[in-house]
Amino acid sequence: MAIFVTKILVMHELSIAVNIVELVEEAARSQQAENVSKVVLEIGTLSGIEFDALTFAMTEAVKGSLLQKAEIVYDIIQAVGVCEECCHEFPTDDYFTVCPVCNSMHTSFIKGKELKIKSIDLVTND
C-alpha cells in the first residue's frame, strides 16, 4: 500500500514536470535559443505539489531536452492568509485558518497557490 501511494505522488508531479519542460522549450524555441541555462519556478506551499516529488520528477523530465543542463531554482512561496474582516495577514500551512487576531472564519489566501514558471535564462547566438 505504501508503495502504491508513493507511486501516485511521483506520477502526479511527473506530469507537472513534463508540463514545465514543454512550456519552457516552447518559449525557448520561439526565441531561437540554443538552450536554457536557468529556470525559476514559483511553487506555493498550498499548490498541491509535493516538493520532493517534483524535484525528483524534474531530474527525469529534463533529460534530452533544452533544459538538460539548466539550473532549476525553486522559489517556495509560503502561503499567506488574509482576514476579510480585519485585514490581518498571517503565514499559514493550512487550507483553513481562523484569523489569529479577530477569530473570524472568513479568511482567504493572498499567496501560496502559485504553480508558475517565473523566468527562464535563454542562451542565444545572435
Partner: peptide
C-alpha cells in the same frame, strides 16, 4: 550587445497548468 552568444532572462510568469 548583440552578435554574440549571450544569456537573456525572459520573464514568463506562466501558469504551469496553462495548457490544460
Amino acid at each position: 550587445e548583440h552578435g554574440h552568444s549571450h544569456t537573456h532572462t525572459v520573464t514568463l510568469e506562466q501558469n504551469i497548468l496553462s495548457k490544460n
